[in-house]
Amino acid sequence: MRKRIVAPVVAAAAMLSAPLMRSQTRRDGWEQSVKPPVKGQKSEPARVHDISGIWDPGLAAGIQALGAKVMPDDGTPEHRPPFTALGLEKLNQTKPSNGFRSTLAPESNDPVIAGDPQGMPREDLFELRTVQIFQTPVAIYLLYQFGRVWRVIWTDGRQVPQDAEPRWFGYSVGKWVDNHTLVVETTKLDERTWIDHAGRPHSDKLRVEETFHRVDRDHLELSVLIDDPKMYTKPWVALDKFAFDLEPQTFDVREMFWEPSEFQTYNKLLGDEAAGTDK
């Protein structure tokens, strides 16, 4: 009797799960089939002072829809950055479309949805997709998939000019602290940007510290520290050893934009109706 009950239940469970087991085909922008990297497999040591390569963060790990990966805006106290009174006041002025404080998408005042550049550090903290890194003897260039944006990290020992005007991506200078670890400081950032997709604010005093650590030839880690004494009572970690895998040199990075025209079409067709703001 027991066997008669168990067998159909197990079979039903297998039938429910079986069609879900079809594996996904992974393709690059050139529609070439690309083998997924094997997780946890060490490779040979990397070259000294070299983070160049095409780096992939995996399927969804870099999206960070709820805000910085270490501090997702999920309503828990442990994920709440240490706001100053001014920081809290500024936070209450942002209306993100995701996270604990989310508003309906059409009511969001997210500057990126309006078409502004993400800037730094949000480039690391939202839609962090494939990153291509090139090096010269004096600089490192990072080409981001999302929005096809690039930035430069100067490694020639220069200092940020005192009277430099704020920029979306600020001014980045990098220093090798050991054979495989580059620490990058970015300052003079445009105050109109958000730190992440959860609408965390920053001031003109923001200092972003990125640590790129090349674990071996095929693996790179990125950590990000937010330091803004006007908005936060102490520095806080936004990314902690976020992992990238090296793609083959032949990997073609797919285009990825948030085109305002496609956004408009989407909102007109579905977004506004889903939110109930179409009337």
Partner: peptide, 17 residues
């Protein structure tokens, strides 16, 4: 079966709807 069918909801934007 139940676990395989549970999901996490986290859209890029607009999950409030």
């Amino acid at each position: 079966s139940v676990l395989s069918l549970s999901i996490r909801l986290s859209a890029h934007h607009g999950n409030a709807a």
